[in-house]
């Protein structure tokens, strides 16, 4: 492979847009003072350990799924977004995608 190809197509920092979103959300909440980074690491490493007991994690999609699960549980415990509230909002977004004609911006009213 030529060096040009490597320069023009670097390894993506985030493989999927939602990986970037959940990462940024967590960093932002930390910087806004909702939790310390040490608190986050303690919870996140516990989730990884639990997931890693049943199968070997490859550090890709499974890593960010564990990240998301940690954040959902953390926010529910903080009383910021309960599991039911999050699930209801997820369903609203899903319905919005399924009911929005292709090519138009997907929005929900709130």
């Amino acid at each position: 492979m030529s060096s040009c190809a490597e320069v023009s197509a670097p390894e993506p920092v985030f493989a999927e847009p939602w990986h970037a979103q959940v990462f940024a959300l967590t960093v932002h909440l930390n910087e806004a003072g909702r939790f310390s980074w040490a608190e986050w690491v303690e919870r996140f490493s516990a989730t990884l350990k639990r997931h890693g007991l049943s199968r070997e994690l490859d550090g890709g999609e499974d890593y960010f799924r564990a990240w998301l699960e940690t954040l959902e549980v953390f926010l529910a415990e903080q009383g910021v977004a309960s599991g039911a509230e999050a699930e209801q909002m997820r369903c609203r977004w899903e319905a919005a995608y399924l009911n929005t004609p292709h090519g138009e911006p997907v929005q929900i009213e709130y």
Binding site: W18, L25, R34, A81, R90, R92, W93, E94, Y97, L98
Partner: peptide, 24 residues
Amino acid sequence: HALLPPDPALRVKALETILTQKGL
């Protein structure tokens, strides 16, 4: 219709919406 993002992407969007609504 618009392409449905994967389940975790919808869950992230849900958290984002809730936190934005609450001004957090």
